[in-house]
Design a binder for these strands. Structure first.
Lengths: 107, 107
DNA sequence: TTGACATATCGAATAGTATCGATATAAGAT
DNA sequence: ATCTTATATCGATACTATTCGATATGTCAA
């Protein structure tokens, strides 16, 4: 939906930890064992992992991780879904596809 | 040849001017009219444009442009060929292809 | 060998990013 | 209403990037 700002995307990708988060979110079940433990069985946020689970895996402060995630969301790389007190972040494949296309065709 | 450092690549791509330079170098003849004016006819640096011609097009100081170009070269996005007092820069398609692959397969 | 030109490097000023701990907000449980 | 837990935001400090003008280096020509 949102328009692609490649500069912001590349800035977001210029960081090892953020790159890792994106990679890990390819296979959330594998990389975040406790994934969606807080969600009742009838609710499922496809591919989404909450901030706390991500924070546990990267070794940085809560505020830094929260900041990273919202940065990636603003760049369009992630999307956020709130459920109760938790925010679930998942990959935004649409943007990723656009970025790949941009590199192939524009750059 | 050189190994791909994606962080450095994404940093280099996080800038409008540098992105433009890369784009322009897709079609050097079209974007740099004076292209290779200094080279004798028997020498040709395929796709290469000298620093001065690039500087004329982006509106930044000589030192900034030289710095940008060497940054992009270190990241592997460009390669440099020196001829006499001129340095010709051209795209390094091998790296660009690797970056596209990385986005598709790793990220 | 001196002068002119192309490019690279240096040093400095300013702006932007990374990262933290502390605090605010919001939801859920008692 | 109060307490707890999850996340977001704030303010500070350290580090990195941007950009410049000045200077150094390298090459060619007279």
């Amino acid at each position: 939906m949102e328009n692609l700002n490649v500069i912001d995307v590349f800035k977001a990708l210029s960081n090892e930890t953020r790159l890792n988060i994106l990679k890990w979110l390819r296979e959330p079940e594998k990389n975040f064992p406790a994934q969606q433990a807080h969600l009742p069985k009838e609710v499922s946020i496809e591919g989404g992992v909450c901030v706390g689970d991500i924070q546990e895996k990267v070794n940085l402060s809560q505020s830094t991780v929260s900041h990273y995630l919202s940065l990636m969301q603003k760049a369009g790389l992630l999307e956020a879904v709130r459920y109760g007190q938790w925010t679930y972040y998942r990959r935004n494949e649409e943007t990723l596809a656009k970025v790949a296309k941009f590199i192939n065709e524009e750059i």
